[in-house]
Design a protein around this nucleic acid. Structure first.
Length: 754
DNA sequence: AGCACGCCGACT
DNA sequence: GTCGGCGTGCTC
């Protein structure tokens, strides 16, 4: 008998099930005739029993059930008659899992986190079944169809396995209630009621009674009255696709189609694969040129960037994690079931990679962004997957970035540089300047901003007050008890708290040094709070606004153009544009370079260039307080030559055989007991040494932060081609400590999440 | 991933 | 003597 291989959104390989008992229905047969001869179940969502409960997976293959040494269970039902994934999508999924050294289900869970809908579940005892077999609590099942909710899943599974349960499972389709007018206003209505009803007529509909009341400027009671008297009523309405939806706010300086002026497409040489440089709007014009050629999948590293782009592509379909899961499923239904073709463009985050349509090109925006590296699950680096999908589909893969990444066949892909001007850069050599953390020279710059009533961004690498707290007399440092990391000081002085940014450990800052009793502490490494304090003293006339991922002040006055300072971490890159931005100051530029990581320099370089684009049209002065003015990244800005920086960087990577010359895999072994983690790492290294050539295996070594959240961490690194790494990873013995695999690691600090 | 099963330390 | 820690194994 034929069995289904079902991938569940779990870190597992697919499981086998027998097809559902219930017939697949006329629709499915009809669908098959329409679609051609492929299997009617491949790629479909299917509900299966899983550990006594019901889960939703995707049929990714078919096999002969006789191969299994045990009795397979039956799937319960398909969720729809058409496949969510086509054979080529499934093939891509399988290849991706291989590349990532991850189970198929892990990749599925990452790319389709909205796969499993709430289920509508009805069931009854198979007619003719002796009711005496019913366990207590299930008697009502003999009386006919029942809602599945409320029954003990384990007991139900017992009946299911016994083959006496009949089940109907379907997706709980989203529906929302909208308020629509039924009658025109008449004299029986009060003035307020009339106003509310007229407003409803004008709007056509309202999301809720409260929303209409607010719109019309009447109380909720007035609207309730309209409904009670039959002037208006709630009506079920399907979710609507966001195609063509106009975002309300248009970013500063952008001139999108909303204003009636479409972005003028920039012609590009047809062979260009790696487009870089230019300014944001110029790159958007380049993108506009690319998407004109036909259906295109455009990937963004972050939703914030996608949304900034959206107003310029009013006919594009946005697809990202801020859309509700219902809406994302709806989009899949429309594309997979109804053959809706997102005609032109899909602008998406990584979740759009499995959309079952056939773009003629895949474009990855800002392919060097760290946001493309998923931090949990399969830990995929999305541009690799995009490139893989393009390769399998035989379509062009194009990147459009301010600064290219060294990854993904950098040298092999035909580059096309857009014109780039040297940004206005001012290097403050802190070996010579006086004043910390704001030098006298920086104070002068800030005072000019104040005088001209302009705005400035002050960017630091750390939130909190300082990166560490040290005793001035002995060498005592506040350390986290659970991590090999210094505690960060939050709020200076009496109220000071010490926090670990890795594990969240928190304690009071000690009044005296625990080691020598001294009262004098020295904070090191300025953070946002320290800067807020120093700026208050240096330029009291400029109001300060804090902006970090955790704490955002309201920016209305700044957005209205009033003078002020935006002080924060790199979260500022996602903040709205400051209209009067004149200065971007980094008081401690090296703070962004401290990661012990071979990519730190490339990352710093990209950050500096990104900062030159904080305003889409203006050219604010970029001032860096640095101890290393001759850093190659600074040179790249002065000479407007990021490609030169990358070429140089590539030479270094080549000398060390680092990516992109070779791929890398990090094996992370962790355990609460240090020797256990160490031995496990040694053991694994021993095994690998037997099959590697010199240079392919690095380590084992304690991780750069050797203890995180009470776990001791050891690393092993493998370097090689994809093919070679696959050979090396084959048949890895089980480790005696927790083993986590990071394909193409981007960070070496901290413990891998899951 | 989640969950059950199974074997060694501090305690009502 | 038990409760519970987490290390190991399994899920079709």
């Amino acid at each position: 008998m034929q069995a289904l291989r079902v991938a569940l959104p779990l870190p597992l390989e697919p499981m086998s099930y027998l097809p559902p008992h219930t017939p697949q229905g006329e629709e499915a047969l009809e669908y098959r005739h329409r679609q051609g001869p492929h299997s009617p179940s491949l790629g479909r969502r299917v509900v299966v029993p899983w550990r006594g409960e019901l889960r939703v997976g995707i049929v990714v293959g078919l096999e002969d059930s006789a191969h299994k040494g045990f009795t397979l269970r039956h799937a319960v039902a398909y969720l729809e008659p058409y496949p969510w994934l086509r054979p080529q999508d499934i093939h891509f999924l399988e290849q991706a899992a291989q590349e990532l050294f991850a189970p198929l289900g892990s990749v599925l869970a990452d790319l389709l986190p909205f796969l499993e809908p709430p289920l509508k579940h009805r069931l009854r005892l198979l007619p003719g079944t002796a009711t005496s077999v019913l366990p207590s609590g299930l008697e009502s099942l003999a009386e006919g169809w029942q809602e599945g909710r409320g029954y003990d899943p384990k007991l139900l599974d017992y009946l299911r396995e016994g083959g006496v349960l009949e089940e109907l499972v379907e997706e709980q389709r989203p529906s929302r209630q909208i308020l629509v007018p039924l009658k025109t206003p008449d004299t029986a209505l009060s003035a307020k009621g009339r106003l509310a009803l007229e407003t409803l007529h004008a709007l056509g509909r309202a999301e809720s009674m409260a929303a209409l009341a607010q719109q019309a400027g009447v109380s909720a009671g007035v609207v309730r009255g309209l409904v009670e008297k039959g002037y208006a009523a709630f009506q079920e309405s399907p979710l609507e696709l966001p195609i063509g939806a106009q975002p309300q706010a248009v970013p500063i300086g952008d001139r999108p189609a909303v204003e009636g002026r479409a972005l003028e497409p920039l012609p590009l040489p047809p062979e260009a694969q790696r487009i870089s440089g230019g300014r944001w709007l110029l790159r958007l014009r380049a993108l506009s040129g690319l998407v004109r050629e036909g259906p295109t999948l455009v990937l963004f590293p972050e939703v914030a960037q996608l949304k900034r782009c959206l107003p310029h592509f009013p006919h594009a379909l946005p697809f990202h994690g801020e859309l509700s899961p219902e809406l994302r499923r709806q989009i899949f239904h429309r594309i997979a079931g109804e053959g809706l073709s997102p005609g032109g463009v899909v602008l998406s985050t990584y979740q759009g990679l499995l959309l079952p349509f056939s773009p003629r090109r895949i474009v990855v925006m800002e392919e060097g962004s760290d946001a493309y590296k998923l931090s949990a699950g399969s830990r995929a680096f999305i541009p690799y997957l995009a490139e893989l999908r393009a390769k399998l589909a035989g379509i062009p893969y194009t990147t459009v970035s301010l600064v290219s990444s060294l990854e993904s066949e950098w040298e092999l892909r035909q580059g096309h540089g857009l014109p780039l001007q040297p940004p206005r850069l001012h290097l403050l050599d802190m070996r010579q300047e006086r004043g910390w953390p704001i030098s006298g020279a920086a104070v002068n710059l800030l005072q000019q901003v104040a005088e001209k009533k302009r705005q400035a961004v002050v960017l630091v690498a750390r939130r909190g007050y300082s990166a560490l707290l040290r005793c001035k007399h002995c060498d005592w440092k506040a350390m986290c008890p659970d991590c090999a990391l210094p505690l960060r000081l939050h709020r200076a002085g009496r109220a000071g708290r010490l926090l670990c940014h890795q594990c969240g450990h928190e304690e009071k800052a000690p009044p005296l040094c625990p080691q020598c009793g001294s009262e004098v502490f020295e904070p090191r490494g300025p953070g946002v709070e320290w800067l807020l304090e120093a700026l208050q003293a240096a330029v009291p006339s400029l109001p300060r606004y804090r902006y970090t991922a955790e704490e955002k002040d309201r920016l209305e006055p700044l957005l209205a153009g009033e003078p002020g300072l935006l002080v924060g971490t790199t979260a500022i890159l996602r903040a709205p544009t400051l209209p009067e931005l004149a200065l971007v100051l980094l008081p401690y530029a090296e703070g962004f370079l401290l990661d012990s990581d071979f990519r730190a320099s490339e990352r710093y370089h990209r950050l500096l260039w990104q900062l030159t684009e904080l305003h889409p049209r203006r050219r604010p002065l970029l001032a860096l307080q640095t101890f290393d003015p001759a850093h190659p990244a600074h040179l790249s800005l002065q000479q407007a030559d990021p490609e030169g920086f990358l070429r140089n960087e590539l030479l270094l990577r080549r000398a060390l055989d680092y990516p992109p010359v070779q791929r890398m895999i990090k094996l992370e072994l962790s355990h609460a007991k240090e020797p256990v983690a160490r031995d496990a790492a040694m053991e694994l290294a021993e095994f690998l040494r037997g099959r590697t050539r010199p240079g392919e295996l690095l380590g084992p070594a304690p991780a750069p932060v050797p203890k995180v959240r009470g776990q001791y961490v050891f690393h092993l690194l493998l370097k090689g081609s994809t093919q070679r790494l696959r050979e090396l990873m084959q048949g890895l013995p089980p480790a005696r400590a927790r083993l986590r695999i990071d394909p193409d690691p981007h960070s070496f600090v901290g413990l891998l999440e899951d």
